[in-house]
């Protein structure tokens, strides 16, 4: 997240993965979710470090479920949601009017 409150690319991916795996969002599962959707390898350490940073900024919280205290389960906070929304809005404004097909670089 930069000084403007927007998320970095990997932070955005991690936050989205936390939402998609809601309820079972522990580090390894978040990693798998990103791997599944992006089809590339993600190092688990990077996911842990990013989740820590997001928690320090108050964008996610972590807790241990009563039945399985070995897992640290993440939940997105209200602040996390608004950061995602702001990041997405900026991105869409930037994409507005950009047509990659016309520039000939859109993958077929």
């Amino acid at each position: 997240m930069g000084a403007d409150g927007l998320l970095g690319a990997f932070e955005e991916q991690v936050l989205l993965a936390v939402i998609r795996t809601a309820g079972d969002a522990y580090g390894m599962e978040v990693r798998r979710e990103i791997e599944r959707t992006s089809e590339r390898d993600v190092a688990i350490g990077a996911v842990y470090a990013t989740l820590d940073r997001l928690e320090a900024k108050g964008l996610v919280t972590s807790a241990r479920p009563r039945g399985d205290p070995s897992r640290r389960i993440f939940t997105i906070t209200r602040g996390g949601l608004s950061s995602l929304a702001a990041t997405r809005a900026v991105r869409e404004r930037l994409w507005h009017g950009v047509n990659l097909a016309r520039l000939g670089t859109e993958p077929r």
Binding site: D41, A43, G45, D52, A63
Partner: peptide, 29 residues
Amino acid sequence: RQVLGSLPALIRRSWWRGWTGFEPQANRM
């Protein structure tokens, strides 16, 4: 690949936690 990819991030996180004193909610026990 997992280990070598993770180590730099984990070392940075150790440094950062030590420096800021950050301790996540889930680890308070």
